[in-house]
């Protein structure tokens, strides 16, 4: 497998040729926990806590119904894509107050899937900025919420200010097939990148 980007603390044994660590990121309430839970072949790790009144004015729930918990540490799931490739999915919390943890979870990851919501696209900029700071390649998957507006791809690309080579996919985080396609788009993007990018 391709090597992860360099920094201290990347420790995958040399014998591990087929395990790829990927991040699943995105802003608050975009569906990261759902996404990891949908795809994981093992019981996923979840660290959800009930949302409290303390964060009422910080974590904006406008337009989001039925959400009562939020991830405070991380999500984890595993997906065997084929005989050669096992994906380890690490979901990081969306709120800015978890930024340091987010960076720690990113250690050793090869790339990231950024989940986005068309009702609050502007909230994805912070996330993408952080990934660029970490020099972590990413793909963007718009989570197709019921009732959320749909836009043509060129408009979405412009709104998100994506580079031409950055994959943009639409998926339904509740749907296994659709979510798998989003991950495959990311993996293909990572494989297309010149090896020297990682070397």
């Amino acid at each position: 497998m391709a090597s992860a980007r360099s920094s201290e603390g990347i420790y995958v044994r040399a014998t591990v040729r087929t395990a790829v660590k990927l991040l699943v990121v995105g802003h608050f309430a975009v569906g990261k926990t759902t996404f990891v839970g949908t795809l994981s072949e093992i019981r996923p790790l979840r660290t959800e806590e009930t949302m409290t009144q303390a964060a009422e004015h910080v974590d904006d729930l406008a337009g989001i119904q039925g959400k009562s918990t939020t991830t405070v540490a991380m999500d984890f799931g595993r997906l065997t894509l084929n005989d050669q490739l096992v994906l380890y999915l690490f979901g990081a919390p969306g709120q800015h107050r978890f930024k340091q943890l987010w960076k720690d979870i990113a250690t050793g990851a090869l790339g990231a899937l950024v989940l986005a919501d068309t009702r609050r696209l502007e909230e994805s900029f912070d996330i993408m900025g952080l990934l660029e700071e970490l020099e972590l390649p990413y793909a963007v998957a718009v989570n197709d919420f019921d009732g959320a507006p749909r836009f043509p791809e060129p408009e979405l690309r412009e709104a998100l200010d994506l580079l031409p080579e950055t994959p943009l996919i639409t998926c339904d985080a509740r749907d296994r097939v659709s979510s798998t396609h989003a991950l495959i788009a990311l993996v293909e993007h990572l494989l297309r990148r010149p090896v020297r990018e990682y070397a």
């Binding site: 980007r5 990347i10 070397a199």
Partner: peptide, 9 residues
């Protein structure tokens, strides 16, 4: 740390 990943091109 794995070998050969210390320098980005």
């Amino acid at each position: 740390p794995r070998q050969g990943i210390g320098s980005r091109a």
